[in-house]
Amino acid sequence: MGTEILQLMIGGFATGSIYALIALGFVLIYKATGILNFAQGELMMVGAYIYFALVTELQLPFLAAFLLTLVLSGILGLVLEFVFIERMVGEPVFSVVVITLGLASLLRSLTGIVFGVLEKGLATPFSGKSLAIGPLVIWQTHAYAIVGGVALFIIFMAFFKFSKTGIGMRAAAEDQDVARLMGINIGRVFGLSWIIAAVVASVGGIFYGDLSFLEPHMSFFGLRALPAALLGGLDSVGGALIGGLAIGLIEGLAGGYLGGTGQELAPWILVLVILMARPYGLFGTREIKRV
């Protein structure tokens, strides 16, 4: 009994750290540019497919493929931002958000046409292997997802707290005009936020692809990270981690004890509850509207 709940919790935390990585992308872009990127799930999917192509087509070893995936995803994020988002600065939020929806459809369609819609297995050196800790037997992928996710979060939290660029990004999120007057390059901040969002999403995508499989509609899994971002607060990096882990844990336990497909539904009901009760999330900043 005790070990069963621990097992479920570890599985939940593993899914949760993937959610957290994708949620981090939502939060970063929201913080820096004030828009919600509905193509975040697609960035995750494309990242996973890039890794898949590098491993199967180019036969690269894991570490090389992994690092190259990060680089290529970052480039993709930068290109999307530069081509589509950059020129929308100053346009209504509605237009920019709908553009990300359009990009999402476009990326899904292109990926499907290039790789086909059939499910594909994705292999990493730790797929299918388990790790025994005392009475607990856990999948290595779960362990790496949790460790990797938390490590990335610590890196980014330190980046925002201590590095000059990170502090500049926080300033830009606070007030674009003032930040610009202080000499911060807003265009660079926008680009950087999309690069980081695409990179963390691709890490999440590789772990998710390992736990499950690849198909173009896996991007809807990425959309389910939205509740995580909302729960933590759309503008809170630490909130994304806690929100992601919490949602993963709830899903894991609900799936284990209640069974069925309720875990697809639960996040969306949670979203409505959060939006009604506390739209700025647990750790987000409360917005005050002025005329």
Partner: peptide, 23 residues
């Protein structure tokens, strides 16, 4: 591959239309 992936292509074209019109 274009005609065999017609549904996907349609989805992509809708996305492209949204993006292009808005820009």
């Amino acid at each position: 591959e274009l005609s065999s992936n017609f549904l996907l292509l349609k989805e992509g074209v809708y996305g492209l239309i949204i993006v292009l019109f808005l820009i």
